[in-house]
Amino acid sequence: MTAAALEVVDLVKRYGDRTALDSLSFTAARGKVTALLGPNGAGKTTTVEIAEGFWPADAGIVRVLGLGPRDRSLRPRVGVMPQSGGGYPGLRAGELLALFASFHREPLDVPDLLERLGLTEHARTPFRRLSGGQQQRLSLAMAVVGRPELVFLDEPTAGLDPQARRATWDLIDALRRDGVSVLLTTHLMDEAEQLADAVVVIDHGRLVAAGTVAELTAGDGQIRFRGPVGLTLALEGATVSERPAGCYLVEGGSGPQLLAAVTAWCATEGVLVTDLRAGRSLEDVFLDLTGTEVRT
Protein backbone atom coordinates (compact mmCIF):
# COMPACT_ATOMS: atom_id res chain seq x y z
CA MET A 1 0.00 0.00 0.00
CA THR A 2 1.38 3.42 -0.83
CA ALA A 3 1.75 5.92 1.97
CA ALA A 4 -0.66 8.83 2.35
CA ALA A 5 0.25 12.12 0.68
CA LEU A 6 0.48 13.67 4.12
CA GLU A 7 0.08 12.10 7.51
CA VAL A 8 0.11 14.25 10.63
CA VAL A 9 -0.06 12.63 14.07
CA ASP A 10 -0.22 14.58 17.35
CA LEU A 11 1.73 17.45 15.86
CA VAL A 12 2.78 20.14 18.34
CA LYS A 13 4.43 23.48 17.54
CA ARG A 14 5.09 26.21 20.06
CA TYR A 15 6.33 29.73 19.55
CA GLY A 16 7.45 30.81 23.01
CA ASP A 17 4.38 30.63 25.25
CA ARG A 18 1.96 30.35 22.36
CA THR A 19 0.96 26.89 21.22
CA ALA A 20 0.40 27.17 17.47
CA LEU A 21 -0.37 23.49 16.92
CA ASP A 22 -1.82 21.45 19.75
CA SER A 23 -1.76 17.70 19.04
CA LEU A 24 -3.05 18.06 15.51
CA SER A 25 -3.77 14.87 13.57
CA PHE A 26 -5.14 14.32 10.09
CA THR A 27 -4.38 12.51 6.85
CA ALA A 28 -4.46 13.72 3.25
CA ALA A 29 -4.98 10.87 0.79
CA ARG A 30 -2.88 10.28 -2.35
CA GLY A 31 -4.29 11.61 -5.57
CA LYS A 32 -6.92 13.73 -3.82
CA VAL A 33 -7.42 17.42 -3.23
CA THR A 34 -7.49 18.11 0.49
CA ALA A 35 -8.48 21.55 1.78
CA LEU A 36 -7.14 22.74 5.10
CA LEU A 37 -9.70 25.22 6.42
CA GLY A 38 -9.52 27.42 9.45
CA PRO A 39 -9.84 31.02 10.64
CA ASN A 40 -6.82 33.34 10.56
CA GLY A 41 -4.22 32.16 13.03
CA ALA A 42 -5.65 28.64 13.25
CA GLY A 43 -2.30 27.09 12.34
CA LYS A 44 -2.82 26.32 8.64
CA THR A 45 0.41 27.88 7.38
CA THR A 46 2.42 26.50 10.31
CA THR A 47 1.17 23.01 9.49
CA VAL A 48 1.98 23.35 5.80
CA GLU A 49 5.42 24.85 6.47
CA ILE A 50 6.35 22.00 8.80
CA ALA A 51 5.26 19.53 6.11
CA GLU A 52 7.36 21.46 3.56
CA GLY A 53 10.40 20.97 5.79
CA PHE A 54 10.86 24.64 6.71
CA TRP A 55 10.39 24.20 10.47
CA PRO A 56 10.98 21.31 12.82
CA ALA A 57 8.01 20.08 14.86
CA ASP A 58 8.23 20.26 18.66
CA ALA A 59 6.48 16.90 18.99
CA GLY A 60 4.46 14.47 16.90
CA ILE A 61 4.95 12.75 13.59
CA VAL A 62 4.73 14.20 10.09
CA ARG A 63 5.09 11.93 7.07
CA VAL A 64 5.16 13.35 3.55
CA LEU A 65 4.73 10.61 0.93
CA GLY A 66 5.85 8.28 3.73
CA LEU A 67 9.06 10.21 4.48
CA GLY A 68 10.20 12.77 7.03
CA PRO A 69 9.52 16.32 5.76
CA ARG A 70 13.22 17.19 5.59
CA ASP A 71 14.20 14.17 3.49
CA ARG A 72 16.14 15.58 0.51
CA SER A 73 14.66 12.98 -1.82
CA LEU A 74 11.28 14.72 -1.39
CA ARG A 75 12.43 17.98 -2.98
CA PRO A 76 11.80 17.01 -6.63
CA ARG A 77 8.60 15.19 -5.66
CA VAL A 78 6.91 18.03 -3.79
CA GLY A 79 5.90 21.41 -5.25
CA VAL A 80 5.53 24.35 -2.89
CA MET A 81 3.59 27.58 -3.29
CA PRO A 82 4.09 29.82 -0.25
CA GLN A 83 1.50 32.35 0.81
CA SER A 84 3.53 35.21 -0.60
CA GLY A 85 6.92 36.15 -1.95
CA GLY A 86 9.63 33.78 -3.00
CA GLY A 87 10.63 35.44 -6.28
CA TYR A 88 13.81 37.34 -7.13
CA PRO A 89 12.45 40.90 -7.51
CA GLY A 90 14.87 41.59 -10.39
CA LEU A 91 14.21 38.49 -12.49
CA ARG A 92 11.53 38.56 -15.19
CA ALA A 93 8.52 36.26 -14.88
CA GLY A 94 9.72 34.05 -17.72
CA GLU A 95 13.27 33.86 -16.34
CA LEU A 96 12.04 32.96 -12.89
CA LEU A 97 9.83 30.14 -14.14
CA ALA A 98 12.62 28.87 -16.42
CA LEU A 99 15.03 28.91 -13.45
CA PHE A 100 12.68 26.78 -11.37
CA ALA A 101 12.10 24.48 -14.36
CA SER A 102 15.87 24.02 -14.68
CA PHE A 103 16.02 22.33 -11.26
CA HIS A 104 14.02 19.40 -12.70
CA ARG A 105 14.77 16.75 -15.25
CA GLU A 106 11.43 16.71 -17.06
CA PRO A 107 9.73 20.02 -16.35
CA LEU A 108 6.55 21.30 -17.97
CA ASP A 109 6.95 23.51 -21.00
CA VAL A 110 7.59 27.04 -19.67
CA PRO A 111 5.96 29.13 -22.45
CA ASP A 112 2.91 26.85 -22.43
CA LEU A 113 2.52 27.15 -18.66
CA LEU A 114 2.86 30.94 -18.84
CA GLU A 115 0.20 31.01 -21.58
CA ARG A 116 -2.27 28.89 -19.63
CA LEU A 117 -1.97 31.09 -16.58
CA GLY A 118 -2.34 34.28 -18.61
CA LEU A 119 1.24 35.41 -18.05
CA THR A 120 2.62 35.40 -21.60
CA GLU A 121 2.26 39.18 -21.92
CA HIS A 122 4.15 39.63 -18.66
CA ALA A 123 6.94 37.13 -19.37
CA ARG A 124 9.44 40.00 -19.67
CA THR A 125 8.15 41.93 -16.67
CA PRO A 126 10.38 41.81 -13.56
CA PHE A 127 8.78 39.97 -10.63
CA ARG A 128 8.60 43.15 -8.50
CA ARG A 129 6.51 44.94 -11.15
CA LEU A 130 3.92 42.17 -11.46
CA SER A 131 0.57 42.80 -9.78
CA GLY A 132 -0.30 40.75 -6.71
CA GLY A 133 -2.50 38.45 -8.76
CA GLN A 134 0.18 37.96 -11.42
CA GLN A 135 2.79 37.13 -8.77
CA GLN A 136 0.32 34.67 -7.28
CA ARG A 137 -0.20 32.87 -10.62
CA LEU A 138 3.52 32.79 -11.35
CA SER A 139 4.11 31.37 -7.90
CA LEU A 140 1.58 28.61 -8.65
CA ALA A 141 3.37 27.89 -11.93
CA MET A 142 6.71 27.66 -10.06
CA ALA A 143 5.16 25.08 -7.72
CA VAL A 144 3.94 22.75 -10.48
CA VAL A 145 6.58 23.23 -13.20
CA GLY A 146 8.70 20.29 -11.94
CA ARG A 147 5.84 17.79 -12.37
CA PRO A 148 5.59 16.92 -8.67
CA GLU A 149 3.59 14.11 -7.06
CA LEU A 150 2.31 16.37 -4.31
CA VAL A 151 1.77 20.12 -4.21
CA PHE A 152 1.28 22.34 -1.19
CA LEU A 153 -0.65 25.49 -2.08
CA ASP A 154 -0.94 28.07 0.68
CA GLU A 155 -3.96 30.24 -0.18
CA PRO A 156 -3.53 29.86 -3.93
CA THR A 157 -6.43 32.13 -4.91
CA ALA A 158 -6.11 34.89 -2.31
CA GLY A 159 -6.50 38.21 -4.09
CA LEU A 160 -7.22 36.77 -7.55
CA ASP A 161 -9.92 38.09 -9.87
CA PRO A 162 -12.65 35.64 -10.95
CA GLN A 163 -10.93 34.73 -14.25
CA ALA A 164 -7.60 34.00 -12.60
CA ARG A 165 -9.37 32.07 -9.88
CA ARG A 166 -11.09 29.97 -12.52
CA ALA A 167 -7.75 29.26 -14.23
CA THR A 168 -6.28 28.19 -10.89
CA TRP A 169 -9.24 25.91 -10.17
CA ASP A 170 -8.92 24.35 -13.64
CA LEU A 171 -5.26 23.64 -12.98
CA ILE A 172 -6.01 22.06 -9.60
CA ASP A 173 -8.75 19.91 -11.18
CA ALA A 174 -6.33 18.78 -13.89
CA LEU A 175 -3.67 17.98 -11.28
CA ARG A 176 -6.13 15.73 -9.45
CA ARG A 177 -7.21 14.09 -12.69
CA ASP A 178 -3.58 13.28 -13.52
CA GLY A 179 -2.98 11.73 -10.13
CA VAL A 180 -1.23 14.57 -8.31
CA SER A 181 -2.04 14.99 -4.62
CA VAL A 182 -2.94 18.54 -3.62
CA LEU A 183 -3.05 20.06 -0.15
CA LEU A 184 -4.37 23.60 -0.18
CA THR A 185 -5.20 26.05 2.55
CA THR A 186 -8.04 28.46 2.08
CA HIS A 187 -10.66 30.37 3.93
CA LEU A 188 -12.93 30.55 0.90
CA MET A 189 -15.75 28.11 1.55
CA ASP A 190 -16.89 27.97 -2.05
CA GLU A 191 -13.34 27.10 -3.09
CA ALA A 192 -13.28 24.14 -0.71
CA GLU A 193 -16.79 23.07 -1.78
CA GLN A 194 -15.84 23.31 -5.43
CA LEU A 195 -12.42 21.69 -5.36
CA ALA A 196 -11.84 19.52 -2.35
CA ASP A 197 -12.35 15.80 -2.10
CA ALA A 198 -11.72 16.10 1.61
CA VAL A 199 -11.86 18.97 4.05
CA VAL A 200 -9.88 19.28 7.27
CA VAL A 201 -11.07 22.07 9.58
CA ILE A 202 -8.63 23.24 12.23
CA ASP A 203 -8.89 25.94 14.86
CA HIS A 204 -6.51 26.99 17.65
CA GLY A 205 -4.08 24.41 16.29
CA ARG A 206 -6.49 21.53 16.84
CA LEU A 207 -8.54 19.41 14.49
CA VAL A 208 -12.23 20.28 14.72
CA ALA A 209 -13.65 18.29 11.81
CA ALA A 210 -12.58 16.21 8.87
CA GLY A 211 -14.44 14.47 6.05
CA THR A 212 -15.81 15.01 2.58
CA VAL A 213 -17.82 18.14 1.89
CA ALA A 214 -20.96 15.98 1.69
CA GLU A 215 -20.25 14.38 5.05
CA LEU A 216 -19.60 17.70 6.73
CA THR A 217 -22.64 19.46 5.32
CA ALA A 218 -25.09 16.59 5.87
CA GLY A 219 -27.65 17.98 8.25
CA ASP A 220 -30.96 16.20 8.05
CA GLY A 221 -33.77 18.11 9.67
CA GLN A 222 -32.37 21.59 9.17
CA ILE A 223 -33.91 24.28 6.99
CA ARG A 224 -32.46 27.74 6.62
CA PHE A 225 -33.96 30.73 4.87
CA ARG A 226 -34.10 34.51 4.85
CA GLY A 227 -37.35 36.41 5.28
CA PRO A 228 -38.94 39.47 6.85
CA VAL A 229 -37.78 40.19 10.39
CA GLY A 230 -39.92 38.89 13.24
CA LEU A 231 -41.82 36.01 11.66
CA THR A 232 -43.42 33.70 14.17
CA LEU A 233 -43.61 30.22 12.69
CA ALA A 234 -45.49 27.70 14.74
CA LEU A 235 -44.47 24.30 13.39
CA GLU A 236 -45.29 21.10 15.15
CA GLY A 237 -42.23 19.19 16.34
CA ALA A 238 -39.78 21.83 15.17
CA THR A 239 -37.93 24.67 16.82
CA VAL A 240 -37.45 27.95 15.02
CA SER A 241 -34.70 30.45 15.76
CA GLU A 242 -33.97 33.80 14.13
CA ARG A 243 -30.37 34.84 14.27
CA PRO A 244 -29.24 37.25 13.04
CA ALA A 245 -32.47 39.18 12.33
CA GLY A 246 -34.14 37.91 9.16
CA CYS A 247 -32.14 34.65 9.03
CA TYR A 248 -34.15 31.67 10.20
CA LEU A 249 -33.11 28.18 11.22
CA VAL A 250 -35.76 25.51 11.55
CA GLU A 251 -34.73 22.26 13.18
CA GLY A 252 -36.56 19.04 13.91
CA GLY A 253 -38.14 16.02 12.30
CA SER A 254 -37.03 14.65 8.99
CA GLY A 255 -35.92 16.80 6.08
CA PRO A 256 -38.60 16.35 3.42
CA GLN A 257 -41.51 16.76 5.82
CA LEU A 258 -39.91 19.73 7.49
CA LEU A 259 -39.37 21.39 4.12
CA ALA A 260 -42.98 20.82 3.16
CA ALA A 261 -44.13 22.21 6.50
CA VAL A 262 -42.07 25.36 6.11
CA THR A 263 -43.20 26.07 2.58
CA ALA A 264 -46.82 25.28 3.48
CA TRP A 265 -46.67 27.77 6.33
CA CYS A 266 -45.22 30.38 3.96
CA ALA A 267 -48.01 29.78 1.44
CA THR A 268 -50.69 30.11 4.11
CA GLU A 269 -49.20 33.26 5.57
CA GLY A 270 -48.36 34.77 2.18
CA VAL A 271 -44.69 35.20 3.06
CA LEU A 272 -42.02 35.00 0.35
CA VAL A 273 -38.70 33.75 1.73
CA THR A 274 -35.36 33.62 -0.08
CA ASP A 275 -32.15 31.57 0.11
CA LEU A 276 -34.04 28.53 1.28
CA ARG A 277 -31.67 25.67 1.87
CA ALA A 278 -32.10 22.21 3.30
CA GLY A 279 -29.02 21.00 5.13
CA ARG A 280 -26.04 23.19 5.83
CA SER A 281 -23.55 24.99 3.69
CA LEU A 282 -19.88 24.47 4.38
CA GLU A 283 -19.82 28.01 5.72
CA ASP A 284 -22.54 27.17 8.26
CA VAL A 285 -20.54 24.16 9.34
CA PHE A 286 -17.41 26.23 9.57
CA LEU A 287 -19.04 28.95 11.66
CA ASP A 288 -20.70 26.34 13.89
CA LEU A 289 -17.36 24.71 14.49
CA THR A 290 -15.16 27.76 14.88
CA GLY A 291 -17.62 30.38 16.19
CA THR A 292 -18.43 33.80 14.81
CA GLU A 293 -15.92 35.77 16.82
CA VAL A 294 -13.54 37.74 14.60
CA ARG A 295 -9.93 36.57 14.91
CA THR A 296 -7.06 38.93 15.27
Binding site: R77, E106, L108, R147, P148, R177, V180
Partner: peptide, 11 residues
Protein backbone atom coordinates in the same frame (compact mmCIF):
# COMPACT_ATOMS: atom_id res chain seq x y z
CA UNK B 1 -5.18 14.30 -19.97
CA UNK B 2 -1.87 13.19 -18.53
CA UNK B 3 -0.11 16.47 -19.26
CA UNK B 4 0.42 17.06 -15.54
CA UNK B 5 1.13 13.42 -14.63
CA UNK B 6 3.98 13.32 -12.10
CA UNK B 7 7.52 12.87 -13.48
CA UNK B 8 9.56 14.04 -10.52
CA UNK B 9 13.34 14.00 -10.85
CA UNK B 10 16.01 16.52 -9.98
CA UNK B 11 18.09 17.95 -12.81
Amino acid sequence: AGSLAPRPAAA
